[in-house]
Write a protein that binds this DNA or RNA. Structure first.
Length: 271
DNA sequence: AGTACGTCCTGATCGC
DNA sequence: TGCGATCAGGACGTAC
């Protein structure tokens, strides 16, 4: 479930691999529906010989501006992951797409469930849906959340999952933020008090910041991959486990068809 | 407009 | 032990 911290980690992996400055020489698309724009043919013909200038991130999207003034956009979906590999290496089974680089290496896009998406566009911000503020770099304010939540009856969790409200949050970090803020996921968004909004905003920022720091450490120290030690969240994602704050058994429910974990004692249903 | 839910996918896990 | 059923959930489309 790549969310903001995982996508940011992917961005840093590509930076460390010195992707900027390289050009793509060949694009192999193994699952056509992944390409959202332009047509598959134009996408595959359009990428080669263009140099990658930098690697940016907006919400859960990785944006690679090219020297053609176009942008190569990658969305990891639910199971996507990128890595840069030697061309000599045999491509692993779940790698759906490969992008050969002018230095002999290959950018792998691994995507078991094929939920990832790719774009090549001269106008990235109209190709992408409208996105809310970046919680870490734009500065998430209580006033903004208050305005977005005003008169809204939907569960606060549902609104936090909307990328147009806050960019980059997903199921995991929403649960994590609500847990630390002591807010029940089913609370009507409009019913949150100002002090709850203050707490929620801080907990969103802290959850994401902490997770990114853990990924940074994991890369620096070459933690094994995939690691159970690489838990970036603190609330157990298993019913009955003790709440890390009060020890009460963690409960589970479905909110908008999403598996939701919360502490019934720290996050009471009503304010 | 706001809210809710089905759909796409397939590896992992669950339960009989 | 094995095998079919269920689960996972980001973003979009559709429906009320």
């Amino acid at each position: 479930m790549p969310e903001l911290p995982e996508v940011e980690n992917a961005r840093r992996v590509l930076l460390r691999a010195e992707l900027p400055g390289r050009s793509i020489t060949r694009a192999n698309v193994g699952w056509a529906p992944t390409v959202k724009q332009p047509s598959l043919e134009d996408f595959v013909l359009g990428l080669p010989s263009k140099q990658i200038l930098s690697i940016n991130r907006r919400g859960k999207y990785i944006l690679l501006p090219l020297d053609s003034d176009e942008t190569f956009i990658i969305h990891l979906g639910m199971t996507g992951g990128v890595s840069v590999q030697p061309a000599s290496r045999e491509v692993e089974p779940m790698v759906r797409h490969t992008f050969h680089l002018d230095d002999g290496r290959v950018l792998w896009f691994r995507d078991p469930r094929k939920f990832g998406h790719l774009w090549l566009t001269a106008d990235p911000y109209s190709a992408l849906p409208s996105l809310g503020p970046e919680p870490l770099s734009d500065g998430l304010t209580v006033n903004y959340l208050s305005e977005k939540f005003r008169d809204r009856n939907a569960p606060v969790k549902a609104l936090l999952l909307e990328q147009s409200v806050v960019a980059g949050l997903g199921n995991l970090y929403v649960d994590e933020s609500l847990f630390h803020a002591g807010v029940n996921p089913t609370r009507h968004a409009g019913s949150l008090t100002t002090s709850e909004l203050v707490k929620l905003k801080d907990c969103i920022v802290n959850s994401l910041t902490n997770a990114i720091a853990i990924y940074d450490r994991a890369r620096e120290e070459h933690w094994p991959d995939p690691p159970s030690a690489l838990h970036t969240w603190t609330i157990p994602r298993k019913a009955g486990e003790p709440c890390p704050r009060c020890g009460a058994p963690i409960a589970t429910m479905r909110v908008r068809a999403r598996g939701t974990f919360f502490c019934p004692s720290c996050q009471p249903p009503e304010a």
